[in-house]
Design a protein around this nucleic acid. Structure first.
Length: 454
RNA sequence: GUGAUUGUAGCUCAGUAGGUUAGAGCGCCAGAUUGUGGCUCUGGAGGCCGCCGGUUCGAGUCCGGUCUUUCACCCCA
């Protein structure tokens, strides 16, 4: 006998975990819908032509490829078999989706004539990456994306911030910070540092600030080819402090005449002023010039969310604006803004804080415990209870009372209805509250009404 | 992709210097209690010691490989 196993970096989710995960998913879904987003699902597999080249060289390596069916090897040429890169197109033309954004862009392009723009969609599906697993990093994980495409309005950014606040409030995560920055400010910074073309290297280095410290960032910049002079010009950047308005005026000064930078600052000011209609949301927003976010396609405001309580410090949500999402698929000029919740990490944060509500358990409300002689009567009562909308089950066989109650206990079913022949004859049932250990005698109607109210 | 690390019962983990029959706690099953779960007591089941190969009279223990786990880097949610 071979011991069963699951692939590296994948997980099973048992009933308790699913109850908790569904609580998170449902909360996010409700919020997305409340803000007018419509659901979308795309296939697990995409054609490799859709996926490759969208995530950089690193990304292509992390794509799971799907082998063609049939005798694919026969179709390959001797020449191509020499190394795997040239062989690949012969043996694989499909891959598992790597994120939800690229399939979404593909969908928008394919359906551009039928969609109502601005188009708002949300999408909650698993994605796959052939990465090496680590703490909080899996080869299969869920993304919860919401994007709106076809408008430049900064209202969207403000709404994203509100959605984040709504979701975390509902989940019970009270202390979190939404770090906000702007890609054009970062461009402006690289202009000021006389290194206009090196924006990416600048972002990668700056993004590591809280992880490796200021001096190491300078070292990294030097390695990436920044001159000492450039680095020296960057120093004031790390001295920026104060509240959000103060930070923005300092960075405005730092950026001087940079047109790019000025536009970024102006946009952030607008977003802040829009967000100010909800003062409690403003408390979470934190302008942070060192926030870079890796994804290459962002061009406008970017933001990232971290929990400030508990021991999980990685980001639990994030997003930003992109000017040309669909350009690679031949549709230019579609601007959009989107963000995503990291469900796995939100789960970890909530577990760490012990804030999952008990109602997240998705078991039945009641169980009927009965005896051999009352099997048929119990089965009929079961139907009546379900018909009244009460989630109920009965133990499938007339086992010993101890066994039936123990089953209810383990499944954390809150109520057990004691229903033997005597009970049915007199229409008086024992309703046992498993939590309290107490028991009341009720007739069928009272029983149903009582359980409905619970 | 680079460098480490882990693997013993369903779970968490002991296992002395290589030496008969591999242990504990929790969980599971049964009974004490024939119509009442949790608590207690008694008993029981359950292990190719990750897998393959090597060293040895003898390997859970030492060596090599492989898979897996965890961690750092790269990158990322």
């Amino acid at each position: 006998m071979e011991k069963p196993s699951i692939p590296k970096g994948t997980r099973d989710f048992g009933p308790e975990k699913m109850a908790r995960r569904n609580f998170i998913f449902d909360t996010i879904k409700e919020t997305f819908q409340k803000y007018g987003f419509m659901p979308l699902e795309t296939p697990a597999m995409e054609n490799l032509s859709v996926l490759t080249g969208k995530y950089g060289n690193e990304g292509d390596q992390l794509l799971f490829k799907v082998l063609n069916s049939g005798d694919f090897l026969a179709k390959s040429t001797e020449e191509n078999r020499k190394d795997y890169k040239s062989l690949l197109p012969d043996i694989s033309e499909k891959g598992l989706r790597y994120d939800l954004t690229v399939p979404f862009a593909r969908f928008v392009v394919m359906n551009r004539n039928d969609l109502v723009f601005p188009f708002k969609r949300y999408q909650i599906q698993p994605v796959w990456r052939a990465d090496r697993p680590q703490k909080g990093r899996y080869r299969e994980f869920y993304q919860c994306d919401a994007d709106v495409v076809g408008t430049d309005s900064l209202l969207c950014e403000a709404e994203n911030i509100f959605m984040i606040c709504d979701v975390f409030k509902k989940l019970g995560i009270k202390k979190f910070s939404i770090r906000l920055n702007h890609r054009k400010i970062l461009s402006g910074i690289s202009e000021v540092a006389d290194a206009p073309g090196k924006e990416n290297a600048l972002c990668i280095a700056i993004d590591k600030l809280d992880k490796i410290g200021e001096e190491k960032v300078y070292e990294e910049l030097a390695v990436s080819g920044f001159s000492d002079k450039s680095i020296e010009k960057l120093r004031p950047l790390f001295q920026v402090q104060g509240n959000n308005d103060e930070k923005l005026s300092q960075i405005s000064e730092f950026l001087g005449s940079s047109q790019q930078g000025k536009k970024g600052v102006d946009e952030l000011k607008t977003i802040l002023s829009l967000a100010s209609v909800r003062p409690e949301a403003m408390k979470h927003i934190d302008i942070d010039l060192t926030l870079a976010r890796g994804l290459g396609y962002y061009t406008g405001a970017i933001f990232e969310v971290k929990a400030l309580e508990g021991s999980i410090s990685s980001s639990i949500s994030g997003g930003g604006r992109y000017d040309n999402l669909t350009g690679v698929f031949g549709l230019d000029g579609v601007s959009g803004v989107g963000f995503s919740f990291g469900v796995d990490r939100i789960y970890d944060v909530m577990e760490d804080l012990g804030i999952f509500p008990e109602s997240a358990l998705e078991g039945p409300k009641a169980m009927i415990a009965y005896f051999e002689d009352s099997f048929t009567d119990a089965f009929a009562l079961l139907h009546d209870l379900r018909h009244a909308g009460i989630s109920t089950e009965m133990y499938p066989e007339a086992a010993k009372m101890k066994k039936q109650l123990s089953y209810a206990d383990k499944k954390q079913i809150p109520f057990v209805i004691m229903a033997g022949p005597g009970e049915f004859a007199q229409n008086v049932f024992g309703l046992k509250n498993m939590r309290a250990g107490s028991q009341d005698n009720l007739n069928k109607e009272e029983l149903i009404n009582r359980l409905k109210m619970q």
